[in-house]
Design a protein around this nucleic acid. Sequence first.
DNA 1: TTCAGGATGTACT
DNA 2: GTACATCCTGAAC
Length: 199
Amino acid sequence: MLHRLTRDFYLQDTLTAARALIGCFLVHETEAGRIVGRINETEAYIGAIDKACHAYQGRRTPRTETLFAQGGTVYVYLIYGMYHCLNVVTEAADVPCAVLLRGCALVEGLDLAAQGRFGTAYTELTESRQKTLANGPGKLCMAFGVDRAQNNTCFLDGALTICDRVGPHVRETGAITASKRIGIDYAQEAADFLWRFTG
DNA sequence: TTCAGGATGTACT
DNA sequence: GTACATCCTGAAC
């Protein structure tokens, strides 16, 4: 069984959505098979008040255009010239907000993910590499085979989706922790917002 | 076990 | 020209 989150979910308040995404499943249906991971780390980016957000104060450029789409849109961008980051656009159209998916634990399609990251089968990986398969935004994209081709597609009807139920897996969360976001020291007071969720 | 440095390209000043 | 929502490797402790 595969149960996609509905439009209502993505139209929620960004901080609420960022917290609620913990425990949900990121699913990518590729030609080679399905890759599924339990989301365990997210960060919220809210354009109106957030200096770390690409669309801070409504800054609108070709790159940030996707952030102004309706909640449920996929926003992928290139960072540091070599890595991609996968975001979930939230809230209504013309409100630039998104949730960055920073990490997940793979539960299905392990070999596909390992091929994407290291070019070898999962069973060939060292224990260390198995544990760190998708525990960071750049790594998550490599493992799921996500790049800018997915930018501006839709989580509701595309190959890339988010579900609260996939096969035998059901969304399940224990304690969720809020903490400071990572890698945005340049964002002054916004760097101290507790907009990172793990669980 | 921790840490510094390099790779790399796009967007924007 | 500069900065960037990162990751990996290898050297030092």
